[in-house]
Amino acid sequence: MQELHYSRPTTVADAVVALARPDARVLAGGTDLIVQVRENRRQVAHVIDLKRIPELNAITRQADGGWRIGAAASVGRLGRDAAFAAEHHALLDSARLIGSLQIQNRASLGGNVCNAAPSADAVPLLICLGARGVVAGPGGRRTLPIVEIATGPGRSSLAAAEILVAIVVPAQTGRWAAKYLRFTPRREMDIAIAGVGVWLQLDQQSAITGAAITLASVAPTPLVAAAAQTLLVGERLSPKLIAAAAQSAADEARPISDTRGSADYRRQLVAVLTRRALEACAGELGIHGT
């Protein structure tokens, strides 16, 4: 157990100043941080609670049809936004895999991104949907793709005094569907051995105009299966195409073997989950017989 200081700024500017102190960490839901501190896995001297900063808690639909999600907004609140839930049920479903209902009432999407766990359940679809992070720091603000935030297990590309302010999910156009599937040996209270997020966009003739596949728990960071994506674009969904994309994703995975599962098994799961996620998207888009 460590002695620590706690502050609760009400503006982003104050939070950035507070964060400049050594061993300072931001606290949103705290569902990762508090556990890490209690288990002596992370040294923290200053805890900067972000929940009193209005911008970090706002969930707003933007003029262009995109969504801006405050980085500290809880998954529970996100789920209670009916318009968001109607449009982004797949993303919401993936976020609702995090912990239990009680945890979801604290845990934030921003925390899921910044904690940088390879197994983060809400991150693959954020990446697939092309989400960007708005980051504030001593030098002002910048935005970057969510996929660029995690750099390794527990490590992010954010500078020491930078905080994630919001996640912007761009407006989705045309016929599109998304699905995240993960596998856990236990149905709840478990961490994905492998997870696959899929996003598909079709034109009116059902040709694939956009495809995104992001894998969880099979690399040091969420992993974009670029070759599998390329295979899909411009084609029409068929069992053969889906099988090829699934195999490609499995080949692209870079899993390790540990107590949760072997690399061999994780690769097989990637193939199975990619196929099933693509089939689910196809079903949602009214493409049958895949």
Binding site: P185, R186, R187, E188, M189, D190, I191, D258, T259, R260
Partner: peptide
């Protein structure tokens, strides 16, 4: 012991 936690020593939940 590689799985010395309730997370990795997987006792079933109600859903299992």
């Amino acid at each position: 012991l590689r799985n010395a936690s309730m997370l990795d020593y997987r006792m079933p939940t109600a859903l299992d």
